[in-house]
Design a protein around this nucleic acid. Structure first.
Lengths: 339, 339
DNA sequence: CTATGAAACGGAAACGTTTCGTTATGAAGA
DNA sequence: TCTTCATAACGAAACGTTTCCGTTTCATAG
């Protein structure tokens, strides 16, 4: 049977309160400090987190709800967060909701039952309904990558400047003389999808271009989706000269579709992809890419949540942090005209 | 303030024990059942897991220690496991140890402090030292993908038949007439690496071939590693006619290196890769692949652990489950001779 | 030496369950 | 109507912490 604080009390002759106090960083007389430390070592004492949580109402656990674990962007963020949180003794419970709002809601309920201290969510349900119960319960929430208008001011968030990212990429294509540009987006309702579409359209408008609806394809941020939409784009009557794909997995899928169609990049078609510079940057031809600061995002999310968790009962100061992206030039975009 | 079982007692006039019993699936009189259900609904009662855990000494939480979250094979297994476990109300705490034995040991300690009911581990430390404390504490352990000899009989495990997988792949190359075959393996000490090497050598021996040490490259199961080792193989004085790469990420890396070297598959060099049929299978040329049953592995691990968790204090019947792999033929292997 | 006050100490009451051992209930059989 | 007996209900004692708040300790000043 594991030893308890009572065993330490018995062994040292001290009171429970004193020992508890010391274990939580309080001051005790040097002599007692030594006594306690010895006893802890001899008895291999490990505090019972259950009892501690029961009293403090804190689990030192945070829940993470994501649409999909098998996604490079997401796992890289989780890895960074988990690292920071675990160092501060927070456990991370990951719930993959498979991009299904019903499952997402279930995940939030589940995590509330597990009494997580905080919640990190890359939301699937863009209404934000799923988070209401957590909000009502006063659980601090940090959104990642996507903002929910309906929760404005009540949650923190870390996103990238999607509009600007898409503008930069599209502008780069336009300035290179491309006018028939395909766009492969993620799921229609989702924040990043909308923002990236917006940026794309902004840039087009700057060049007095109004791309047809058939050039703008919604997909689902998966390899298969990118593959299918690239195929669809290739079967349009009017051939494209360029395509902009808006996440890593879809970029892979699109590249596969281009390979299958025996189209050469950039000779037959120009491509701008997304994320994972190490992979695409190494490919031949080096892809021109929009790069998101994945580590910074993870770090930011973790710090933000830790801030909310530690500020106790004070009014939570929710903030939205927008990080910049970078357009990394490769040689997958053909210059149709001198700039 | 959240309501407790006491509030329900007050509202229904029943005793604590009766309510607790009912909530845990016990029988109560139909009339009382109705009373309790009504009260639970009205008071929005949610059992306090802290108190429950304190009494039962069970957290309904399992820990998962892995070498690397950003790895397709691993995340696909975790997704499957998490799904099954969460349905049964088990939370999954994921710890990424970055293929670092020190961090791995820390992760096990951390999870023990969090008092997980069980442990799932894809071990980095091949001595198994890191799991000893958990073993001593009587925490059920299931290993994934890798077996630790030193823990034989004390833990369960789910692996694939790595020797056979490598034999099949290598034999396929040999039967196609290849004799200069490169092999790209993972980290040297690791179980799968050793087994896949063994299978490779077995097949070579069948054909009375003794590949030089320089043809067998150890790496680290990452894209960068596969890329670097493919480069190294290409710079050997004697050119290869084929290469066998033994995981997904390294296969990607190797393909990039081949692209960069402007080598055509299978004309200039034949390739057999690993995993992720959807991606490589769709690529042109379709890669010939060793496919591991990732879903089955995840399912098996979850079921095995659940079995250990539910058999209570009975002697744990540890088993090692070996699942078969499949060689999926594409057109990345050139026939140098008629079979 | 005593008075003083800050710092350390410790007893006891929570926190919200589960469970043990006992008692109450009520339907069936005598 | 009275036993009998299986079943359900119950009171109280845990589980191992933290914390409130009254008490003790002890260094320093007087």
């Amino acid at each position: 049977m594991a030893s308890t604080i009572k065993d330490i009390a018995k062994m040292t002759g001290l009171g429970l309160a004193t020992i508890s106090k010391y274990l939580n960083g309080g001051n005790v007389r040097p002599n007692n400090k030594r006594l306690i430390e010895d006893a802890v070592r001899d008895l291999r004492f490990v505090p019972n987190e259950f009892a501690r949580s029961l009293k403090t109402r804190l689990s030192r656990t945070v829940g993470v709800v994501i649409p999909e674990l098998g996604n490079q962007f997401i796992t890289s963020i989780i890895t960074t967060m988990e690292d920071i949180l675990r160092k501060l003794d927070y456990a991370v419970i990951v719930c993959d909701c498979r991009t299904d709002p019903r499952r997402e809601k279930e995940a939030v309920t589940f995590l509330m039952h597990k009494r997580v201290d905080g919640l990190i969510n890359m939301p699937t349900d863009s209404t934000g309904e799923h988070l209401k119960p957590a909000l009502d319960a006063g659980i601090p929430i940090v959104l990642v990558d996507r903002i929910l208008k309906s929760l404005s001011g009540r949650v923190s968030a870390v996103v990238v400047d999607n509009v600007e990212a898409a503008e930069k990429a599209t502008r780069f294509l336009l300035e290179s003389g491309h006018e028939e540009i395909g766009l492969i987006l993620g799921n229609e309702g989702i924040y990043t999808t909308q923002k990236r579409r917006e940026g794309f359209l902004n840039a087009c408008a700057e060049f007095s271009l109004k791309p047809g609806e058939e050039m703008i394809r919604f997909s689902d941020y998966t390899l298969e989706g990118g593959y299918a939409q690239m195929k669809a784009l290739l079967s349009l009557p009017k051939p494209l000269t360029a395509v902009f794909v808006t996440n890593y997995e879809m970029t892979l899928g699109a590249m596969i579709a281009l390979n299958e169609a025996a189209l050469k990049v950039p000779d037959d078609i120009s491509v701008i992809g997304f994320d994972k510079l190490d992979l695409f940057g190494a490919m031949y031809p080096h892809l021109t890419l929009v790069k998101q600061p994945q580590n910074a995002i993870g770090e930011c999310v973790a710090k933000l949540l830790l801030g909310l968790l530690s500020n106790g009962s004070a009014l939570p100061l929710h903030q939205i942090i927008t990080l910049p992206t970078q357009l990394c030039e490769g040689d997958s975009v053909r210059k149709l005209k001198r700039i």
